[in-house]
Design a binder for these strands. Structure first.
Ligand SMILES: [Mn+2]
Ligand SMILES: [Mn+2]
Ligand SMILES: [Zn+2]
Ligand SMILES: [Zn+2]
Lengths: 139, 139
DNA sequence: TATAAAATGATAATATTTATCAAGTAAGAA
DNA sequence: TTCTTACTTGATAAATATTATCATTTTATA
């Protein structure tokens, strides 16, 4: 989201908001609110955690980011608002994007009357780093 | 999990544990710890919420149930430990099972070195109840 | 019954998120 | 430029969810 879009969305250009957006831009880590807060403190030592939460919620409302339910411990945020899937390391909780367009047809009989509007696939696995650590522990 | 399996897993047969297992058996609601606790209070007015959490964690460790990451607010538990997918109402958070076996091939080039061991699909939609409520509000 | 290991329940502690609200700021109008 | 107002921030309290601690009780077995 650039300055233009922010204004179009009826939001004010505050330094805090711009810093958070700047941090999120091209960020593939799927950070938590706490992660973002800590990164902000380096440049804005007075920024409140509440501001981080407020900003994230505002951006989510406007469709600029999405909240991803992939970590049972905490919310994590994705600066890419378009539908895509994720690869999750069950050991270190790292999350990577997987951009593949699967055609997931659900037969009417299994929809239970639901109107399906989207989907999200979580692939579980072990990342290269964790695999290495595990093999070292073995030997 | 029946009495036999509980003993085989090295667990003791306590009234609380049996009551929780009994409540979960054939339960398709994907209840939260709080949901389970409230249901238990009717029969065991002294049961502690800690016991519910302890029991759920023990059962999960033993592979008798699974914890499903589908609700950003709280953990929800699924008495069916086998892999299956879910249909989630984005409005009321109701969760239904979808038992369909999709073949989700991930090309090696997109695995980023991960060793993939499983997957889980969340289908998002609006349940019949919520659809009805929404159409009433419209008119 | 006696014993040891495991489990429970009360409660404290921690972690995460949301609510409240006074004070400060951005943006358009005058 | 100054004024005005709605929006935003930051400090902090409150709410919610989960985990830890530990004395007491219970289960399973001998
Ligand atoms: Mn992503
Ligand atoms: Mn299920
Ligand atoms: Zn890992
Ligand atoms: Zn619904």
């Amino acid at each position: 989201m650039d300055r233009q879009k922010i204004k179009e969305a009826g939001l004010k250009l505050t330094p805090q908001r711009l810093a958070i957006l700047d941090y999120l831009r091209d960020n593939l880590e799927h950070p938590s609110a706490e992660d973002i807060y800590k990164a902000m403190l380096e440049r804005f030592p007075t920024m409140s955690l509440a501001t981080v939460y407020n900003t994230l919620e505002t951006l989510r409302e406007k469709g600029a980011i999405q909240e991803v339910t992939i970590d049972p411990q905490k919310k994590r945020f994705d600066p890419n608002p378009r539908p895509h899937h994720h690869l999750i390391c069950t050991r270190c909780k790292r999350v990577l994007d997987i951009h593949i367009d699967y055609q997931l047809h659900v037969p009417e009989a299994k929809k239970n009357g639901f109107e399906i509007v989207g989907n999200h696939i979580e692939f579980y696995g072990i990342c290269p780093d964790c695999r290495l650590k595990m093999s070292v522990m073995q030997s």
